[in-house]
Structure formats: C-alpha cells, structure tokens
C-alpha cells in the first residue's frame, strides 16, 4: 500500500487528485494538512483521510509521498519541508511563479534525493498522447508551425491576488501548452513575444487575464499561443486546450477536451457541456505512485516544471517591455 498525503486544498485540482487516489485500491490517502484549517479538515472528512493540524506532525507520519496544492507562492516553502522529510513530491503547476524559486525547488529535491513531479495532467489525456505518437512517428512530416489555446473561465479567489498566485492568466494558462509542445515535439523554446494584459476584468482584478504569445522553438518552429481567462460565466464549459500542427505532410488538430455532450437545462439557464472519457488526473496520480514504487522522478519532472516557468516569466517580461525575450 502506497501512502499519500495532500498538502493544502487551495488549488481546486486537489479535490480531483484526492478522488483519484481513493479510486486506486493499492493507494491510500492517509492524511491531509492545510494552511486553511477549516478547508483541510473538510477535505479530510470528504476523502476519509486523517486531518493533521501541525505540518511537522503531518510530515512525521509514515507517508511515501505528498501532493502539494497550495497557492503558487507557497510551493517553495512546502517542497522544502516535504523534501527534508524525505517525501516524494508531486507539485501543482506552475512549479513556482519565479524561475529562481523553481530552480531552488529542483535543487532541494536533488539534494534530499526525493522524486519531484510537476502536475501537468494534459500529458495523460488520451487525445494528446495519441497526437504525440502520431507526430513522433512522422505521420505529419516536419512540423513548421503550431497554433494553440488554453482558454479558461476566471478562477477567482487567490488566482488573481499577485502575492499568492505570482501572476495571472499568462502564467496559469501557458505552462500546460509549453510543457505539451516540449513533450510532443521534443524541442525547447528559444524566444517569446507576448501581447497581453487585463483585457476583460478591468476594475475587478490586478493581474493579466489574457496573453497572445508568439514563440519560437528549436529548428525555427513558429508557435502562437493564447493563454486566457476569457471564457465568460455563461460559456458551456471551463475552457479548452487546443493545438493545430502544420506539417509538411498535413495538419493535425487536437481539441483535447472535446469529448462532451451538450446539455440544455432550464435549471442552469444556459447550455452546458458534460464531459465523458478518461480523467487525465488519474494517469498523473498513477505515474506519481509508480515513481515512488520505482524510486525515480515522476514524469513530467521538476525540470519540466522549471522550463515551463522560465517560458512564462519570459512572456511576462515581454508583455511589459514589448520586446522579444530570448530563452
């Protein structure tokens, strides 16, 4: 039995990870800790885990690994504690809002010889895995250009408070696609230009809610990506992850979460999309468990998290300076 703990339910993904853990017969959600005691206690109850008030007491438990779902600017401190206690770590994305913090997180885990994974569940979405296989098999020849989106609804709460989130939609919704493209095309990004800002929530929040990024990858692949919280409240779903690959042998389009029913409910007063198919979080948590059993880094690892952070930091710099930033 692999024993896991969750540190903080500040990020809503924690609820999905907890449900995934509970669905695995060989894994146990042993304990929950959080800065917000009430929220952590409730979550512990909801998922039949032990609630522990004190973080040192929590880390003294016989846990094989922890999943960190605190606010972005708290990742670094929690990784330090968990790594020092010898726990395997799966950290919510972005690994950290600043490159220096992300680097320190990677270093700490190397030093303490614990595995470190970054929570990029898109790598476990079947459509994106199939797309990667086809791209790597050369079905679309050489890839010349990519157009991507990761739109979402405004998540609210600490996501728009810079001291907790460390950034806005450009950070929140660039990391997934940046990681996916590195993984699918096996190349690194070399530069980024970003036009962005608070386009749709003026007077409401103090961070950017949209960025249009123009990036280049090794080999000169031209990439355009939209990171946003532009989906309004009446939109039928949370958002999207889409990718269009222009290759010498054809075009590949992925709309990763376009497995849905359209539901019209008078009670909801809007049309809604009900998803079906696999939950990518399950694959992410399963990989974390396997990495513990095999005493290795989970994939995607800390370096993957660091690279994604470096790209968002460069995009934010470009957004301020209106210049292309080299990576």
């Amino acid at each position: 039995m692999v024993k896991l703990g969750i540190m903080s339910f500040a990020h809503m993904h924690a609820y999905s990870y907890a449900a995934c853990v509970n669905a695995m017969p060989d894994v146990e959600l042993t304990a929950v800790w959080g800065y917000n005691l009430r929220r952590a206690k409730q979550a512990a109850q909801q998922f039949n885990a032990r609630f522990v008030k004190d973080v040192n007491e929590f880390l003294a438990l016989d846990l094989d690994g922890v999943i960190i779902c605190a606010e972005n600017t708290r990742h670094h401190a929690l990784v330090e504690l968990a790594a020092s206690a010898g726990k395997w770590i799966l950290c919510e994305k972005p690994l950290a809002p600043e490159s220096s913090e992300a680097k320190r997180i990677v270093k700490i885990c190397e030093r303490e010889r614990v595995g470190l994974g970054t929570a990029f569940p898109c790598r476990f979405a079947p459509s994106l895995m199939a797309a990667r296989d086809q791209l790597q098999a050369g079905d679309f020849g050489d890839i010349y250009a990519v157009t991507a989106t990761n739109h979402g609804q405004f998540p609210g709460g600490w996501f728009a408070v810079p001291e907790w989130s460390g950034g806005g939609a450009v950070m929140d919704h660039t990391v997934h696609v940046a990681d996916l493209l590195r993984w699918m095309l096996g190349r690194e990004f070399t530069s980024v230009y970003c036009e962005g800002g608070n386009q749709l929530h003026q007077g409401e929040i103090d961070v950017d809610d949209l960025g249009s990024l123009h990036l280049e990858m090794e080999g000169g692949i031209q990439v355009q990506h939209l990171a946003s919280w532009s989906r309004c409240r009446s939109f039928p779903t949370w958002g999207d992850v889409t990718l269009e690959f222009i290759g010498s042998k054809g075009v590949l389009n992925v709309d990763a979460f376009n497995q849905k029913l359209t539901v019209y409910s008078d009670a909801a007063r809007k049309a809604e999309w009900a998803p079906f198919g696999d939950n990518p979080d399950f694959g992410l948590v399963r990989e974390f468990v396997t990495s513990i059993q095999e005493a290795r880094d989970p994939s995607p690892n800390g370096i993957d998290g660091l690279r994604a952070t470096e790209i968002t930091v460069a995009a934010e710099k470009s957004m301020r300076t209106h210049r292309v930033v080299k990576l």
């Binding site: 010349y144 250009a145 036009e195 249009s212 123009h214 031209q222 355009q224 222009i246 010498s248």
Partner: peptide, 10 residues
C-alpha cells in the same frame, strides 16, 4: 509544395 501560414497579433 508552397505553404504559407501566418500568425499575427496586434
């Protein structure tokens, strides 16, 4: 096989 693909932000 000519091919053009243009991405513009303003």
């Amino acid at each position: 096989e000519p091919m053009d693909y243009s991405q513009v932000t303003m």
